[in-house]
Design a binder for these strands. Structure first.
Lengths: 136, 136
DNA sequence: TATTGTTATACTCTATAACTATA
DNA sequence: TATAGTTATAGAGTATAACAATA
């Protein structure tokens, strides 16, 4: 057991961070697949708020714009997202969730509120973890 | 029971966890690519300790054994890993780092010890973060 | 000329299933 | 029969470059 005084290197923290994410990832994947979505598709779905251009979604998910086309294609095929032309700039396509898309996103969000890997943490540990992660 | 801090839901922590990982991921990717490696290849490299069967590597990285073949193929092509037959069971191939592989891994590890995203944390915050992440 | 979204291309990662060579 | 590793296959995500439509 590491004590409060043990110094931790970045590499150790990075290792722990990846391990922690993997534990959470398993649950995320399980939840997403229940709705026929991959993790990435679920992330895109969660990042969609109001109607916004593809470009904005690319920035939000820090990926190349050419990726957005494909990922959105697959979510759109499931009827969760729709593309509508922007009247003020006909180059732009605005993305927005369908009613079904909003329903699925709400369900996913609520299921993410019961992550087994986080069940062992006390209220104080949660807030402390949240505070520290926010610093990263 | 409630302390001076706000209570955090799982979803909030998951969001912060993913955000923190993304911040670290950028650095990891940068370091790995400097040695011609992808993030996944660098992870495999770091997970290799003594000579061990492919199977063990698959378990360690929690992926299907069929993946290991391809990823190791690519690292092997770079001369960082080698496959040697196990005398006690001729079905098994033992994986081990080459001298060059050990050198690269050491370098990567040392570069991971200076993660910009973690620079703002104090020694106490680091050990506390490490402790909490270990609980997840 | 510059920008938005798309397409074409190529590569990596991923799991499933079938295969081989051993055990 | 069972197991270790491979191969074949298919799909998803990724970036780069070239493209059409629009600004």
């Amino acid at each position: 057991m590491s004590s409060d005084t043990t110094e931790q290197t970045d590499a150790v923290i990075v290792g722990l961070l990846f391990a922690a994410v993997q534990a959470v990832h398993v649950h995320f994947e399980h939840v997403a697949s229940r709705y026929g979505l991959t993790v990435q598709q679920a992330k895109f779905l969660r990042s969609l708020e109001g109607p916004q251009p593809m470009r904005a979604v690319a920035v939000q998910n820090s990926c190349d714009p050419s990726n957005v086309t494909g990922v959105i294609d697959r979510i759109e095929r499931l009827g969760l997202v729709q593309r509508t032309p922007d009247p003020s700039d006909r180059r732009v396509r605005l993305l927005s969730l369908t009613a079904e898309g909003r329903r699925v996103r709400r369900k996913i969000d609520s299921e993410l509120d019961h992550v087994p890997a986080l069940a062992g943490l006390s209220a104080h540990e949660r807030s402390e973890l949240a505070r520290l992660l926010a610093l990263v």
